[in-house]
Amino acid sequence: TYYTVKSGDTLNKIAAQYGVSVANLRSWNGISGDLIFVGQKLIVKKG
């Protein structure tokens, strides 16, 4: 599943929405910090 980042989104918010961990979101998307951008597509695997 792909999720497109919207204004106001955070990794924590997206992780909670999908029932996954922030660590997994980072791993699946090659993100090291907490910086995400509006319009960015993130890979999300269902929890």
Rank of each mutant, 00 (worst) to 15 (best):
I14G: 00
V20E: 09
S7P: 09
S32L: 14
T1V: 11
L42T: 01
G30Y: 08
S21G: 06
K41N: 09
W28M: 07
V44E: 00
T4S: 10
V5P: 02
G8H: 07
G30I: 10
F37K: 08
V20W: 04
D34Y: 13
I43Y: 09
L35D: 15
A16K: 10
S32V: 13
I43S: 06
Q40D: 11
Q17D: 14
R26M: 15
V22P: 07
Q40K: 05
A23E: 10
Q17W: 09
S27W: 12
A15F: 01
S7T: 11
L35V: 10
V5W: 05
T10F: 04
S7I: 13
D34L: 06
L11Y: 04
Q40W: 06
G30K: 15
I43L: 13
G19T: 08
L35P: 07
W28Y: 05
G30F: 09
L25M: 07
Q40C: 04
G47N: 15
I43P: 00
T10Q: 06
T1P: 08
K41T: 12
V22E: 11
V38N: 07
V5L: 03
A16G: 10
T10N: 08
K45I: 13
L11F: 05
V44R: 01
N24T: 12
N29T: 02
L42Y: 03
L35M: 15
Y18N: 12
F37T: 12
I43T: 09
S7D: 11
V5N: 01
N24Y: 08
K13M: 13
V38H: 07
V20F: 04
G19H: 13
G8D: 14
A23Q: 15
A15V: 03
G19F: 08
S27G: 13
G33H: 14
G39Y: 03
V5A: 05
Y2Q: 11
K41H: 14
L35H: 11
A16Y: 08
V20A: 09
Q40I: 05
N24P: 02
V38M: 08
A16P: 03
L42D: 00
V22D: 06
K45Y: 14
Q40F: 04
Y2F: 12
G33P: 03
G47K: 14
V44P: 01
T4P: 03
S21H: 07
G19N: 09
G33T: 13
Y2R: 08
S21R: 05
L25T: 01
I14E: 00
Q17G: 08
G19E: 11
Q40S: 07
S7E: 15
Y3K: 02
T10R: 05
D9L: 01
A16Q: 13
V20H: 03
G30M: 13
K6Y: 04
V44S: 02
N29V: 01
W28N: 03
Y2P: 06
N29S: 03
K41E: 12
R26V: 12
K13V: 15
I14F: 02
K6C: 05
Y2H: 11
I31R: 02
Q17R: 10
Y18E: 07
G39N: 07
G8A: 06
G39Q: 04
K46H: 15
T4F: 10
I36S: 03
V38Q: 14
K46R: 12
Y2K: 07
S27P: 01
Q40E: 07
I36G: 02
R26H: 07
A16I: 14
N24A: 09
V22N: 04
S21N: 07
G19Q: 15
I14S: 00
S32R: 06
K46V: 12
K13H: 12
D9R: 00
A16H: 11
A15L: 02
S21C: 06
L25Y: 00
K41V: 11
K6G: 10
T10D: 12
W28A: 04
K6H: 08
N29K: 00
S32K: 08
T10H: 06
I43D: 04
G19K: 15
L25C: 02
Q17M: 15
Y3S: 02
D9C: 01
K46T: 12
L42M: 11
S27N: 14
G47C: 05
K41L: 14
I36D: 02
K45L: 09
G30T: 12
Y18A: 08
I31L: 10
L42N: 00
F37P: 05
W28E: 04
S21F: 05
K13I: 09
L42H: 00
G39F: 04
R26L: 15
K6W: 03
A15R: 02
V38Y: 06
Q17Y: 14
G19S: 09
T1G: 08
L25Q: 00
L11R: 00
N12R: 14
I36A: 04
I43C: 05
D34A: 07
G39P: 02
N12P: 15
G47Q: 11
G39R: 03
G39L: 03
L11P: 03
G19D: 13
A23G: 11
R26K: 15
Q17K: 10
I43N: 06
G33R: 07
S27E: 15
S27H: 10
G30P: 06
Y2I: 13
T10V: 05
V44L: 08
D34F: 07
L42K: 00
K6R: 09
K45N: 12
V22W: 03
N12M: 09
Y18H: 15
L35T: 12
R26A: 11
W28T: 03
G39W: 03
N29D: 00
R26G: 04
N12W: 11
V44H: 02
V22R: 05
S27T: 12
G30H: 10
Q17N: 14
G33A: 12
G39H: 05
Y2A: 06
V20M: 07
V20N: 04
L25R: 00
K45P: 08
I14T: 01
T10G: 03
A23Y: 08
V20I: 12
S32P: 10
W28D: 05
T4A: 08
D9G: 01
V44M: 08
K6I: 15
K13Q: 13
K13D: 14
G47T: 14
G8W: 05
G30Q: 11
I43R: 08
S7W: 07
N29R: 00
L35C: 07
I43A: 07
G47E: 15
S21A: 08
S7L: 09
W28P: 01
S27I: 10
I31W: 04
R26Q: 12
K45G: 10
G47I: 09
L25N: 00
N29H: 01
G19W: 06
G8N: 08
N29M: 01
V44T: 07
A16S: 12
D9M: 03
G8Y: 06
Y3E: 02
S32T: 14
A15C: 05
A23H: 11
S32G: 13
K45T: 12
G30L: 11
L42Q: 00
